[in-house]
Design a protein around this nucleic acid. Structure first.
Lengths: 248, 248
DNA sequence: ACTTCATGGTTACCGATAGTAACGTTACCT
DNA sequence: AGGTAACGTTACTATCGGTAACCATGAAGT
């Protein structure tokens, strides 16, 4: 069996695996998320059966790529989450920014990770773990401990963690399509939402119902209140909240 | 050309389209998100070329299914979002619950919608709009108006809208896998997060750093503080916040 | 009644791609 | 040297998206 092999054989195999995965990543960045097995093999300078020998099937290769990308992100994420002597808001901001930096740096890879592998019925490979699932698990761990330490209901850790990860994930995807703001700006917005929630919208229903039900009439302040300028500066991480009404 | 045809011919065509889409949905619910064109055609009692005649290509059918599902969700969502004389928190809760109810009712369809269609290079069909993208656009509209009405920065409307939708989407996916709480419970958690953000986690870094860096040592309160009971009752919509420290 | 044409449907095919079988080659390890 | 195990190839199959060509039917128009 495989575990009874020469020790350096195993390490060489791992090295080769890594080479193949990196080639697959290059192929994805070149060809987009729909890169075929043949293209990924060609990028590594080999043919398909090599990939199948190493990864079993496409799902196996996808899982390896996902793991690879996850580890690349996770180092930065863990560094952000585990930093001591940092205010919680800054921790959240750093983590979100680390995530978005990853998105920005490898958009095609990100798009690849965004699509869940469709599990065809004949899939004998182990069930693949989604990218967001892995990140979510990590965040859930940290968040759960934090909630317990704060004396809060730790049952919220998992839904919140997976929710927050999905939030940053979706916002990142949206941001990739139409890049209408800087990364720092988006980080600031998301940090605000995660830390403070939506601002008080007492006038929401009243102001809205009139606007929605009588749709042809534009909101009176639609032009004056939407400057859409980009006040973000070039800082790597924007920690300051965007100016809005303070909750009291 | 097509627009110069008998008027009832056109309506019959639309009816047929709807039948085909509904058959496709049935096939997806039976076979999972990976249902093939042939299976969807067979479910409708026809063969593949019929589908292609109506929808052009797979992307077209997927878009039609997405639109169909979206409209099914959107009615409930709009009803929740446009309700007058409802406190904002309840609006958020209702909207989230409408979303989760949809998830719960058609999990396989939801999984189908969750995966973005991989846009192969030869795709001449119009670019398909993601399910979450459509929901996000709707929420962004409403949220933008609400923010303007509240005098807040409306530039946050889009990132927040897409982020929140992604959050509920991801949390819904997580909830589908391991159903460790009731829908009402999850709705309450997510509503809390969206409306108030994370609770103050002042002791986050201190409490965490010790636990994470010295991983073999379990947190002392890990057993005592995690009862994991399910305090949710069977109410359709849980509006009350989960008991946690009040921000002041 | 016979043709004509639109409509709804089918069979039979093509091309690409996931996945596999069988075989060759290099290099390591007694 | 020789066994053997990893590395690699060519050539194949199966499936699935997509299309071409053909068939049936029924409602006109003449």
């Amino acid at each position: 069996m495989k575990s009874r092999m020469s020790p350096d054989r195993e390490v060489r195999r791992q090295v080769r695996r890594l080479e193949l995965v990196e080639a697959a990543v290059r192929a994805i960045r070149r060809e987009g998320p729909g890169a075929s097995m043949e293209q990924m093999a060609a990028e590594a300078g080999v043919t398909k059966p090599i990939l199948y020998r190493h990864f079993g099937d496409r799902g196996g290769l996808y899982a390896a790529v996902t793991t690879y990308a996850f580890e690349g992100l996770d180092s930065g994420l863990q560094r952000a989450l585990q930093s001591v002597d940092t205010p919680p808001r800054q921790v959240v901001s750093n983590a979100i920014d680390a995530y978005l930096a990853f998105v920005e740096q490898a958009p095609e890879l990100y798009r690849f990770l965004a699509q869940r592998v469709v599990n065809e019925p004949g899939n004998l490979q182990e069930t693949i773990d989604d990218f967001t699932t892995r990140v979510g698990r990590d965040v859930a761990l940290i968040l759960g401990e934090a909630l317990r330490a704060a004396g809060a209901d730790s049952g919220a850790a998992e839904p919140w963690a997976f929710g927050i990860v999905g939030m940053v994930f979706a916002a990142g995807a949206w941001w990739l399509e139409r890049r209408t703001m800087t990364r720092a700006r988006l980080t600031a917005y998301l940090t605000d939402l995660v830390c403070d929630g939506l601002p008080d919208l007492e006038s929401l229903t009243a102001g809205l119902a009139a606007d929605i039900t009588t749709d042809p009439q534009p909101a009176p302040d639609l032009v004056t209140a939407a400057p859409d300028g980009d006040p973000a500066v070039g800082e790597v991480v924007a920690i300051g909240r965007t100016p809005r009404r303070q909750r009291q």
